[in-house]
Design a protein around this nucleic acid. Sequence first.
DNA 1: TTGCAAAAACTAATATCATTAGTTATAGTA
DNA 2: TACTATAACTAATGATATTAGTTTTTGCAA
Lengths: 189, 189
Amino acid sequence: MSPRIGLDQTTILMAAADIADTQGIDELSLAAVAKKLNIRTPSLYNHIDGLPGLRMKLSVYGLEQLYATAHSAVTDMTGDDAIRAMSAAYLAFARARPGVYELTLRAPDPGHPEVVEAGGKLVRLLVALFEDYNMTEDAALHAVRCLRSVLHGFASLEQKGAFGLPLDLDVTFRLLVDTFIAGLQTIRT
Amino acid sequence: MSPRIGLDQTTILMAAADIADTQGIDELSLAAVAKKLNIRTPSLYNHIDGLPGLRMKLSVYGLEQLYATAHSAVTDMTGDDAIRAMSAAYLAFARARPGVYELTLRAPDPGHPEVVEAGGKLVRLLVALFEDYNMTEDAALHAVRCLRSVLHGFASLEQKGAFGLPLDLDVTFRLLVDTFIAGLQTIRT
DNA sequence: TTGCAAAAACTAATATCATTAGTTATAGTA
DNA sequence: TACTATAACTAATGATATTAGTTTTTGCAA
């Protein structure tokens, strides 16, 4: 009496996300997921396309989650406030779901339609942030790249434990965002 | 007639670095290194402490190389010029040695003495950049964290192919560094 | 010069993982 | 009620890291 236990892709993704968040991205294996779900490894193949497929789905899941939290954070906000709210939401997500966040940027094939679509939504949300700043279209796109660099750089270094000194990380992050906002007028043409 | 071929740790590290740079960090395995050197996998254990040991040594190697190129880039420079030179050297290294650069921040144990020492040298070089700006000591340390975030964020996203739009990356990077420099006065106290 | 000890490179063996092929039993449908 | 699709399984294969134990060479000491 083993077939039809009720396994589905969402269950698998949630288990995998939990492993990635708590044990680290390198510990995410099909064997670990199967063990957590009390099933045998090959059973996973009925719902996902191997380990690369699982990682791809997790990337999409993470991008959608990040979009959702960022979107609700910036609604009804404009200008510097919106940038600050976006930044706070971004970092909060990266901190709450370190494994999922990292997977977000490590899709096996970044060109996969689902990943491109999910990432595109997030980028469009970011582009909208700069509509209040009277920039040319290209300048806004450069600004988006800059903001993404700032946010990802901090989140990534913090996550890797690369900030060793005993100095308040939240203070650094606030200064980082303020510095970006203050310097933003540099990007115009 | 097999013992004493003349293998040593440096030879192994160079082969591993080349694999990481050309094939990607996920393709770096002891099997791949052994194949490239025409030896058997277990022979590597006479010179390195398994795959984690190899990755740790590569982290240190990368940090030292990055320090060397950054150091020579900023000598005799001060202020904004020094920050710009440092930024250019950092990105150039990340681009030239993508695998080694990535390993730099992914040491199996970031607390290992050798990694801490090599990373510390680099951080001290960065701290020196802000001596020209009349900041408090803490402010300078925050500034270093901000600059690292900016540089790593851009280098990392570029490397992962996360900047999809057809917009000149060098222009974005110049704007990013200029924005940081322009906003720097925000960090004072 | 000769002999010995350290160690380099090896073969063999084990364990873990991803993946595929093929089997069985269940759930939904005709 | 019977049949088909398929979920979950067992078995098997191949890649990898790692350890144990063997052989041979190098370098040093008597």
